Amino acid sequence: MNELFNGIHKIVLPFQSPLNHVNVYLIEGEELTLIDAGVNSSQAWSELEFQINSLGYKVTDIKNIVITHHHPDHIGLLDYFSHDVKVFGHSYNESWINDYKNLQMHFNKFINHHIKAYGIPDGFKKTLIKKETEGVASTKKITNFLTEGQVLPFLPGFKVLETPGHCSTHICLYRKTDGLLIGGDLLINNIFLNTFMEPPMIGSNERPKLLLEYNKSLLRIKNLDINLIYPGHGEEIKEIDLLIDLQFKKQQKRKKRVMRLLREKPHTIYELCTKLFVGLYEIQFALALSETIGIIDLLKEEKHIVINKTDEVWVCNLNPVPAYF
Rank of each mutant, 00 (worst) to 15 (best):
G56W: 01
K275R: 13
T274R: 14
I240K: 02
I305C: 00
N6K: 12
E94A: 03
H74I: 01
V24Y: 00
H114E: 06
H113R: 10
P156C: 08
L180H: 05
I283C: 05
K116T: 13
S290E: 03
K176F: 10
D36Y: 10
F124W: 09
P322N: 05
V66N: 06
Q104L: 10
G183P: 00
R207S: 10
G29K: 07
M1Q: 04
F192T: 10
P208V: 13
P208L: 12
Y25M: 04
R254T: 06
A137M: 08
T60M: 08
I191K: 14
S17M: 07
I229N: 04
P164C: 05
S42K: 15
N6G: 10
I202W: 00
L318G: 00
I52W: 09
R257L: 14
M201P: 04
K303T: 09
C167N: 13
I244T: 05
T292C: 05
Y174A: 02
N319V: 07
D99C: 02
R207T: 13
E198W: 06
E162L: 14
N308I: 05
S168R: 09
V306M: 05
L242A: 10
I52Y: 09
F285K: 03
I191P: 06
I35N: 03
Y214E: 04
S42V: 15
E213A: 15
E3P: 00
F5V: 08
G119H: 01
D297R: 12
K86P: 01
D241P: 05
L103A: 03
Q150E: 10
L26I: 03
I269K: 04
L152V: 03
I188E: 15
